[in-house]
Amino acid sequence: MTDSKSDLLINGYGSFSGGEYQVVRINGLGKVKGDIHCVQFTTNGDSLIEGNVQSESLRVTGSSTVEGKLKTRETKVNGQLTTEAQMDTKDISINGSAVIKGKLSADQADIRGAITVEEDLEAEAVSIKGVFNIKGLLNAGKVHIELLGNAKAKEIGGEKIVVKKSGIALNKLLKSFFADKSLSVDVIEGDEIELEYTRAKIVRGKNVKIGPGCKVDLVEYQDSYDADSEAEVKEEKQV
């Protein structure tokens, strides 16, 4: 990027065409038609991009919708982010909600709130505190989930997979209310697995710990296995 590229600033309400910029900043309500290539993309308010976005950083306070592919190094969202296609990023942190209608690849993903991914979610480390629906495979080196409600994934695979009920719900009054809130998943496979409040057909791993609130049809473990007295496991076998 050279300094000769200009900035795109929308203050208030505006509609502009895409292109190459240094900084794109939308304060208010903005629409961009076409692909954007920039260093910094900031939305304070509401933005709609009718094209692909490639930017070093993407910051959203409010809401932003990208109708094409999104590629960034750093993504910070306070509010809502929607992408209509795949998203590729290094660090993503979301406070609020995100809907990714393609595959999401990242290095580090930190989500507090809600996330929906229409295809696979791949990252080296994923931490989700809240609810989610991953319609494909959640594949990560480290998966750390703190459940705040119902969550769903088709499959989860990785090195270390931890699913917990969030501390907030530990309150006794909430306990009965929470009992039917859980993570539903077909298959979980990993090296180290610790689960709470998870309904799964199959859990396969080296060291497997099944905690309270779990309903698992089949556990296959290699080295160690442990199940809480409040867990329901239909069948377990060492392989």
Partner: peptide
């Protein structure tokens, strides 16, 4: 099958998923 593959090659689920990623 995935299970056989792991047995035959001695790799772990974690490695397989990592290589897929």
């Amino acid at each position: 099958s995935k299970k056989e593959l792991l047995e035959e090659t001695g790799i772990s689920y974690g490695q397989l998923y990592r290589w897929k990623r």
